[in-house]
Computed example of a mutant assay.
Amino acid sequence: MSESNESSKNLGRRPEGVSDDTVEAVGKVSEALEYVDRARGHLYSFHQLMGRADLLLGDACDLLRDAGHGEVADRLATEMVGRNVLYGRWTFQIVEDFDDNYWSVFREHEHRVRDELQHGVRHVFEAEMKERRRTKGQPGHEGRP
């Protein structure tokens, strides 16, 4: 049995008969999903930032009107306040489309890969890396909580 198989037995993560190559490949699929999750977070940040910017621009238009600059305020309000950020879409529609047609589909695939190849066990690759890299007996390097 390889060293990584032996160390994972101590952690009880790697299912019996799962090869090092499979653990590495499944780990890459999971890592890719983690990057998609991060991208999704940035997309939600974009959604919130654009929404806040639109509200602030609306407030600015009100202030411009109050300051006697109605023509400028009207131009901004008409052309920019509430404007689509992509053709026909506000950011909530972009977020919904991403969630429904990419993120949720990828999550299902990642779960299926883990279920089929690692009996549903998550983070086998990382658990084995932890076991290899930690200093046994050293405070802060415990194998388990």
Rank of each mutant, 00 (worst) to 15 (best):
K28Q: 15
D37A: 12
L43G: 03
F125L: 07
K136Q: 12
R52P: 00
R83F: 07
D59R: 09
H141F: 08
L57C: 11
F98W: 13
D21M: 11
E116W: 01
D100T: 15
Y44L: 13
D100V: 09
R52N: 08
K9Q: 12
R13C: 00
A73F: 00
V23M: 02
R114D: 00
R134P: 04
R122Y: 09
G58K: 02
G88T: 06
E31Y: 10
H123D: 08
G12W: 05
G140C: 08
A60T: 09
V29D: 00
V105L: 06
R132K: 14
G41H: 04
R40Q: 11
G68D: 11
G68V: 03
S7T: 05
L11Y: 08
R133T: 11
K136L: 15
G137E: 07
E24G: 00
G68P: 03
P145H: 07
E24W: 03
Q118C: 15
F106V: 15
L76R: 10
A39R: 09
D59A: 10
V81T: 09
V124M: 00
R38H: 13
N10I: 11
E110Q: 14
T78A: 13
W90Y: 07
V72Y: 01
S8L: 01
H111L: 12
V72E: 06
D54K: 05
E71W: 00
R13E: 01
A127L: 03
E131I: 01
Y35I: 08
L55R: 13
N5R: 03
G143H: 04
E96F: 08
V29Q: 02
E96Y: 04
E16I: 01
K136E: 11
N5C: 09
H109W: 08
R144W: 07
Q93N: 09
R107Y: 01
Y44E: 10
S19T: 09
E126P: 00
